[in-house]
Structure formats: structure tokens, C-alpha cells
């Protein structure tokens, strides 16, 4: 009986010190995307908003930039890439840890932006050598 009480106390203590509310499966059986945030705290909007709405923000921005010619607004894809490109690979694509690819692979959402857009930060196009 005494042993049982000690065990219960230990268990309670363990729950009490475990970090903030946990999602089902966290820390255990469900894998999570492993993305590295290279420059934390500088984002155009809070992380929760970015996670849910970045696609809408980019979609509005692309029309404003291309069709209206409005430049220098926060939700620019190039600005995202400059900040989020991996310090190792220089890109937001490449493997399961790359910022864009990592999460999109995890969520199984097709990533079309980079069929046309350059995924590497500070990329200098060479053009055709004469």
C-alpha cells in the first residue's frame, strides 16, 4: 500500500513537471516535422498565424506585387526565403529539415512555388555564357 502511494506521488510529480499542455501523441509515437528556424523572432506575423495563413498571405502578395507593382511589403516570398533558407544548404528546399520542404513533406501538401521561384537565398543567376 505504501509502495503504491509512493508510486502515485512520483507519477503525479512527473506530470506536474512535464512541460505545458501536451498534444495527443507529442513526444511519443507521432513524428513531428523537424524544421530549423534560422532567425527566430523576426517573422512578419506570429508563428500561429504564419502556420495557418502563410499561403493566403503569399497569394494576396503575389497579386499586389505582380499586378499592381507594389514592392517592399512584409509578406514577400523572397523575404521569407532570405530569412528561412538553411545556413547549411542556403535553401528552403533540399531535405526533410529544410524550412519549406520539411513541413510540406510532413503535411503532404504539394509545394508549387519553387517550380518558378528560386529557393536559394542570395542566389545570383549566371545567365547564358556567350
Amino acid at each position: 500500500m505504501k509502495l503504491l502511494r509512493i508510486l502515485a506521488t512520483l507519477l503525479f510529480a512527473a506530470i506536474a513537471v512535464s512541460p505545458a499542455p501536451t498534444l495527443a501523441g507529442e513526444g511519443g509515437r507521432t513524428p513531428k516535422p523537424v524544421v530549423t528556424i534560422e532567425n527566430p523572432g523576426k517573422c512578419a506575423a506570429p508563428a500561429e498565424e504564419m502556420r495557418r495563413n502563410h499561403m493566403e498571405m503569399l497569394k494576396h502578395q503575389r497579386d499586389r506585387t505582380l499586378r499592381a507593382g507594389i514592392r517592399g511589403e512584409p509578406a514577400s516570398l523572397n523575404a521569407c526565403i532570405e530569412c528561412h533558407a538553411s545556413k547549411k544548404t542556403g535553401s528552403v528546399l533540399g531535405d526533410g529539415q529544410a524550412f519549406c520542404q520539411g513541413c510540406h513533406e510532413y503535411a503532404s501538401v504539394k509545394l508549387d512555388c519553387f517550380e518558378c521561384h528560386q529557393p536559394k537565398a542570395k542566389f545570383k543567376a549566371a545567365g547564358l555564357k556567350p
Binding site: N78, E115, C116, Q118, K120, A125, A126
Partner: peptide
């Protein structure tokens, strides 16, 4: 398919 686009001039296959 293209991979060498300039960041300021996005361009790609099929357009």
C-alpha cells in the same frame, strides 16, 4: 524544368 532562376525573375516550365 528550371533551377537557375534569378530570385527577382521567377520563371518555369509550362508558362
Amino acid at each position: 524544368n528550371l533551377t537557375e532562376q534569378s530570385p527577382e525573375t521567377p520563371r518555369g516550365k509550362g508558362c
